[in-house]
């Protein structure tokens, strides 16, 4: 075992090999008290499976929604969550940090 990042990518590869459509979300920048550092990853399948995390649980739902869009369009997205962003309150980034998350298809 060598840390969770490898596990997330291995899980993503395994899901894809099993015929699932998969997207990978990666924290690219953080400010303030973000709970997970840059490089933290989450894999999401079209069928709704999730592995890993990009926050303490506050934005995973919103990131999973974005991942579904990315799987449909094939286009990567750079998501911006923070307390200065109205949307962040909606998804509840209660920790007060800011984070950017890159979402890409595994394809």
């Amino acid at each position: 075992m060598t840390g969770d990042v490898e596990d997330v990518l291995a899980q993503a590869a395994a899901w894809r090999d099993a015929g699932e459509q998969v997207a990978i979300a990666t924290v690219t920048e953080t400010w303030g008290s973000s709970p997970r550092p840059a490089g933290s990853q989450m894999a999401v399948t079209k069928s709704g499976r999730m592995a890993g995390s990009v926050s303490g649980g506050c934005i995973e739902g919103a990131v999973a929604d974005a991942a579904l869009r990315t799987m449909e369009t094939g286009a990567p997205q750079l998501l911006d969550f923070g307390v200065t962003n109205e949307r962040a309150w909606e998804v509840g980034l209660a920790c007060g940090g800011k984070v950017k998350v890159f979402v890409e298809p595994l394809a």
């Binding site: 060598t2 490898e6 990518l9 291995a10 590869a13 894809r16 990978i24 298809p105 595994l106 394809a107």
Partner: peptide, 14 residues
């Protein structure tokens, strides 16, 4: 990320 790139990454890590 392409599956080929993911495989190359996994190989480097291994």
């Amino acid at each position: 990320m392409t599956p080929a790139l993911l495989a190359a990454l996994a190989e480097a890590r291994a």
